[in-house]
Amino acid sequence: MLSAFLQFLISGVTVGAIYALCGLGFSIIYNASHVINFAQGEFIMIGAMTAVSLVEAGVPMPLAILLAILVTMAVGVLLEKLAVEPARKASVTTLIIITIGASIFLRGLAQEVWDKNFHKMDPFSGDTPINLFGAVLMPQTLWVLGTALLVILLLAWFFNRTLEGKAMLATSFNPLAAQLMGINTKRVLMLSFGLSAALGAVGGIVITPITFTAYDNGIMLGLKGFSAAVLGGLGNGFGAVAGGLIVGIAEAMAAGYLSSAYKDAVAFVIILLVLVFLPNGLFGRKGTERV
């Protein structure tokens, strides 16, 4: 049953690439601030919903995508300015509650700005399945994978080669020292929210032809993205992608060979086991964080 195995694997990679893209957003904010943003899923949803509604209104797709990314970035920066920065000195738990509040708020807003219906977007390059040794692969999956890959490369370049990126890493490592070195840490925090919002929007848009979108789609994607980021090791972009793929493939293999009812549970059991043996995730290291 090689073709069946291959099909499970493709299904897992498709789902995993979606989780990976969602997980990357968590990683960036964590890198800059050690904040976990539980409204990351809402960035994904806002990006997708904005793009979909613009396309429905007749805006050409590339322009709609660009506008959607900008809108989501604006939401991300606003969230940072209005909610996260004023509470910068609060405890991690308090910040978690603030971002959870933000996610409820944004979801509620989305339900009023748009509606409670599901929306679709056409695949970027058609929906003719590609046949691979008896298994089928949808072209959109390649888009999702390619986007994830591109994002990692861009992030690696950004964090290692640009001043802004280095400032971000420095801030994450030691905010006080970074400030003393003349880095504007407030700006870095704002930048990280803008960047991860943009990333969320990109992810949300690329996956919509597969998953559809609705005002409450951010919950599940945020949860799985968080799982992926933690499994891979927080703050590690490559880890988030690996984590996402592992969760996705574990789910698909569990559905294929064990029980589809328990596929999500299997994924969480794997995460728990990994954490027991590697308390900082697969690729997370204490102290020096690099992408």
Binding site: G101, A102, S103, I104, F105, L106, R107, G108, Q111
Partner: peptide
């Protein structure tokens, strides 16, 4: 939800 999230 908007108001609940806002209050939180």
């Amino acid at each position: 939800p908007v108001i609940l999230g806002g209050i939180m």
